[in-house]
């Protein structure tokens, strides 16, 4: 028994050693991030962020800014750490026991990993929309009202109604559900469910919205509606969106960041990235040569 576990540890050590070697290779290949990771009016700033799952490193020294009222698209091949990085921004990684984050991330110049930062408060300020629509098995109304109730944002029924209705309107869902607010949210179509989740997120008036492939489970029409919605939301929020679709990144974002094997290879204005990428890896990816 013992020798077996020792053996396992040995092989684990081997692989981690290997991956370090591999990382070193990329480092040579990739070098430092190229492009413009920083902006004049940052809402959130990430500096030298490393993320580990146990022994395994998933993010290598990533630094970038999310500017006020901009949409930043995070693209890159599967498993390159886009979701991992996104989850660092509202400390959802805290819920994964083996996950460890180092480096610094700030929201309005406040360190979000500081001792006195409450993750519950942080997640109210930095909302998240997930890949798979995940409404609560409650009514549409209760879904949207949940966050407001949770944080005590409404002092009476009228205020709560107001929050629910405006959130649904902003998410472009109100007209479709106006006369079935008290029917279950799980009875909606996939695209409607995702917009319900967006409404639920904006009901607590976050400052930043993180979206992890929000349209990957949706049909083209629902996707188009969501994309339009993101563009409108930009007026009031800072948005980071992970996407697998280059067209989507091009349509909704102002800046695009390209991740590769846990490293931020290149970041810059979206039209520049797609028309004139500076790094070979970026070019290979957007021209579909791999990924």
């Amino acid at each position: 028994m013992k020798s077996e576990s020792e053996h396992q540890q040995q092989t684990q050590a081997d692989t981690s050693h290997q991956s370090e070697n591999k990382a070193a290779d990329i480092q040579q290949e990739v070098g430092a991030t190229i492009g413009q990771p920083f902006v004049k009016q940052p809402k959130m700033q990430a500096r030298h962020v490393d993320v580990f799952y146990g022994e395994k490193q998933a993010i290598y020294d990533v630094s970038l800014d999310l500017g006020k009222n901009e949409v930043v698209a995070l693209i890159g091949p599967s498993g390159c750490g886009k979701s991992t990085f996104l989850r660092c921004m509202n400390r959802m990684n805290d819920t994964i026991p083996i996950c460890r984050v180092s480096g610094m991330i700030t929201l309005d110049d406040e360190d979000i990993y500081a001792e006195d930062m409450d993750p519950v408060l942080l997640r109210a300020r930095v909302g998240m929309v997930f890949q798979k629509p995940n409404p609560f098995p409650k009514s549409i109304y209760d879904n949207v009202a949940y966050g407001a109730r949770l944080h005590g944002l409404a002092f009476n029924k009228a205020e709560l109604d107001e929050i629910v209705i405006t959130s649904l309107q902003k998410a472009g869902l109100f007209d479709e559900v106006r006369d079935r607010l008290h029917e279950p949210g799980t009875g909606l179509s996939g695209g409607q469910q995702q917009r319900l989740c967006i409404a639920r997120t904006i009901a607590v008036s976050p400052e930043v919205i993180l979206m992890d492939e929000p349209a990957s489970a949706l049909d083209p029409i629902a996707t188009a509606i969501i994309e339009e919605l993101i563009d409108e939301l930009r007026q009031n929020y800072t948005i980071a969106i992970v996407t697998h679709s280059m067209q989507q990144a091009a349509r909704v974002s102002q800046r695009t960041a390209y991740f590769h094997l846990g490293k931020l290879v290149e970041i810059g204005a979206t039209n520049q990235i797609f028309t004139n990428p500076l790094h070979e890896l970026t070019e290979n990816y957007i021209t579909g040569r791999f990924g």
Binding site: R123, F130, F136
Partner: peptide, 10 residues
Amino acid sequence: SIRQAALGIG
């Protein structure tokens, strides 16, 4: 996903 939804909203 239900847990994530709740945690993600604070």
